[in-house]
Amino acid sequence: MSNPAKRRSILGWLAAVLAAVLLAGVLPASAHDEHGDHKVIAKGDKCVEDTAYMRRNHMKLLMHQRDETMHKGIRTTKYSLKNCIECHANPKTGSVASSKEDFCMGCHSYAAVKLDCFECHSTKPKAAGDTLHPIVAPSAQPEGKDKQSSLSGKMRWQMQANLASLNGGEGVK
């Protein structure tokens, strides 16, 4: 209940459809220009697509990936919500949506667009040390060469790959 992301307004609940359609259609377009003061939290210096493209289309990418993963088991990381959270979690709160300072909520509360993702999804990246899988499929590793050009991005992929290979024998015990 303390999480603003999970709070639903009475209005939103009663007129969910109306609000979603009207606000999602109208507000982000007008909001995005005067919205420069919102500090973007991100690791590295480049997202998986251009910032302008992401601002307008992140929901489409996420929606597409959501159905691919859920129904077909396709687990590429480039457009996955987990990947977004990895990079955009607020170092202070560790989350993308626990307060208005955080990446997702910052914009969504400004644009007054209801966020449904975090009713179920964790707002935090998987805690370090938890990701020790015997066989991680780092399909994003090659992507890193062209898309994840930043140092931190590279380092992250390397680290994951190292962890994965280190753990190759350990985790199955």
Partner: peptide, 13 residues
């Protein structure tokens, strides 16, 4: 009544 009892009534659409 049926709709408002749903776990996710907000997903009527």
């Amino acid at each position: 009544v049926l709709m408002l009892d749903l776990g996710r009534s907000d997903r009527l659409i």
